[in-house]
Design a protein around this nucleic acid. Structure first.
Lengths: 178, 178
DNA sequence: TATGTTCCTGAACACTGTGTTCGGAAACAA
DNA sequence: TTGTTTCCGAACACAGTGTTCAGGAACATA
């Protein structure tokens, strides 16, 4: 991709350090010096590549997003009680397998921006499985799912992904098939 | 309430300035100096009353919350398709009448903390109208409502509160009455 | 392998915002 | 009036940001 290997090295190190540190202490309290240190990169080098923390996050996010989307679409053939909810099961399983990561996304620790992007992504998934959907319904379902995940990870972590999916589908299916 | 009038004056001025400024430019970019200036209060005085921005917000929030709750409970007798949704109509009307305020709450501009508290408050309302409710369902409905309001104010502001309520109730009622 | 370009580095700098301290002036309750 | 409490503003130390620059290292190319 990148012509110069040094650029690739540096950027990979920085995004890697960002993810590591976000898992350890969230995004808001992170400093640029901290990220550069962890990446073993000079602080001035950071600014040669990114304008600020948010800029780096933005860049890293599309990667994470693509990875997530791939992980979901692997199991896209799954059956669901309503096509709009096809995303639920693979997504819930991904959440269950990467709880710390998703706690960052769903909870408030991910800098707002992450949260917004995740919600938008969920809305996309719903739209894909549900052509011609009412936009109000799409956002309502996305919000319901996000809140459910947040509640799951924060308050009822003993539940399995399967249990959450079943209860969520049982709740939302009647709303969608009217 | 307060023994000393100066304390009351100062704290009222500060919370007032906070709300004003939050409406103008959100919470995150606010500085303590800015708040103190707007309140016409010395910066050191600010720190004599509050540890930091968040502390002041916390204090102001319970007021706002109480005001909101009162505004809702005035119209608590309203009919709804399901008791758990009784909060929707008065809340949506309050949102419609105070769009700038709620755009702060629902959107990401309110510092995360606000957002969390609002969601918790919505969950409370739902629980009150729906004793013995499944906690997953409560959070799902609260999340759905929050996302709906965010979508409304951000993407479809031309809708009236009445329209939003009708569509939201039509969507969620089948989910709740099973 | 030699050459010219590009990138990385570390230190320095100016700047903004934070939170604390303190002595004198003003407002307060009694 | 008197003694207490609060307010003020200026000063201070500190942490983080974003920029600049000169020298050295890594690179692509021929």
């Amino acid at each position: 991709m990148s012509p110069d290997r040094r650029i690739r090295r540096t950027q990979q190190a920085l995004t890697g350090a960002l993810v590591e540190l976000m898992l350890e202490k969230g995004f808001d309290t992170l400093t640029v010096a901290e990220i550069a240190d962890r990446a073993d990169v000079g602080r001035s080098t950071f600014y040669a590549h990114y304008a600020d923390k948010e800029d780096l996050l933005q860049g890293s996010l599309s990667e994470l997003r693509d990875g997530l989307r791939a992980a979901i679409e692997d199991e896209a053939g799954a059956k669901a009680s309503h096509p709009a909810l096809r995303f639920c099961r693979p997504m819930a399983e991904h959440v269950g397998d990467n709880r710390r990561l998703h706690a960052l996304f769903a909870g408030g620790r991910g800098s707002g921006m992450v949260q917004e992007l995740m919600r938008e992504m969920w809305a996309d998934f719903i739209r894909e499985g549900w052509p011609g959907a009412d936009p109000l319904a799409v956002h309502a379902v996305a919000g319901a799912f996000e809140a459910t995940v947040t509640w799951w990870l924060g308050t009822a972590p003993e539940l399995s992904a399967e249990q959450v999916v079943l209860r969520f589908e049982a709740l939302m299916t009647p709303a969608l098939s009217r």
